[in-house]
Amino acid sequence: MNLEMVLRSLCNCAGIAGEEDSASRCACGLLQEYFPNAQLDAFGNVIAVQEGAADKPILLLNAHIDQIGFVVTHVGEDGFVKIASVGGNDRRLMMAQQLRIFGREELVGVVASKPPHLQLPQEHGKAPDFADLWVDTGLSSGEVCRLLEPGDRAVLCSCFEKLLGSRVSSSALDDRAGVAAVLYALELLKGRRLPVRLAVLLSAQEEVGGSGAKIGAYGIQPDYALVADVSFAYHSGCDRHRCGELGKGPMIGIAPTLDRGMSHTLCETARLEGIPFQTEVMNGLTSTDADDIAVCRSGTRVCTVSIPMRYMHTPVECIDLQDVEASGRLMAAYARKLGEGGCDKCGN
């Protein structure tokens, strides 16, 4: 498996929360290499559960398939349309950005920006609210109304780009990087007898509150879950205490809402296997699908394995491929190890 190729193809598909189709289908196809029964559910989740071994505990590998984007809220007859944010977009970077708009056809739009001579003094250096933005479609009134309607999704243009070394950039790395890590773990576990039964949930709508994880986990009923999302990587200007670092391996979560035993075992496993890792200490919720999976049905033991990322929720998110690989290795090693010791079973 060529991790970079897999990640590139995942990133170049759009999958805005609530309309994940293109990315979900791409990921489902990749997942079927390992689980031919992988499928999309009615909500847009991609789900697979390993067949047989019904007596073994289920270990769920999770990443979310959706990404942040925009939804069209109004179509103006002059070819300019209004949008609202889907998920936590950064309004400081919107002016003069190109968008892919998914109407009846895929269209190009440009976020209209007032030239400097028309900016009011109070607008200088300020980022406008999303509600004040107009997107220029360049279409005539008849065409714009034929091709676009409220509810259509849009996303900032940004293809996968390789930077120096093993670093890459794209708008969709949150969380296609996690999806790639899950696929890489499956690659490493292919054909192995495991003490667990594997399941995969590539969840929809994480960026708007985690409904996909709630629905998906309800059906799968996992005993354990590893959540492969992204977290903050340090660069100057950031708060160091709130960040991991690029290239230093997955960030293993430690938090009141995560299973302490799993956090411990993950760190131990990484040490034993020589996999680089860092810890990410949080004081409550994790703001990932782990929050919902943990409290699904009768409860699930959960831990996060986050890939460090710079510039999260921008069109130029950056990660290090080595961290994706190390995350995959760690999840695979954990799956082999689970059931060996006793500590995870008692939760402490």
Binding site: F232, C238, R310, Y311, M312, T314, V316, C318
Partner: peptide, 28 residues
Amino acid sequence: DPRVVLGRRVYVGEKALPGVIAAKPVHQ
């Protein structure tokens, strides 16, 4: 206009080395 700089890709130097311009993530 500084408003069109953040969140963009650029190419640097003779060899057109890809780079990105971004800042502290919105969450922080």
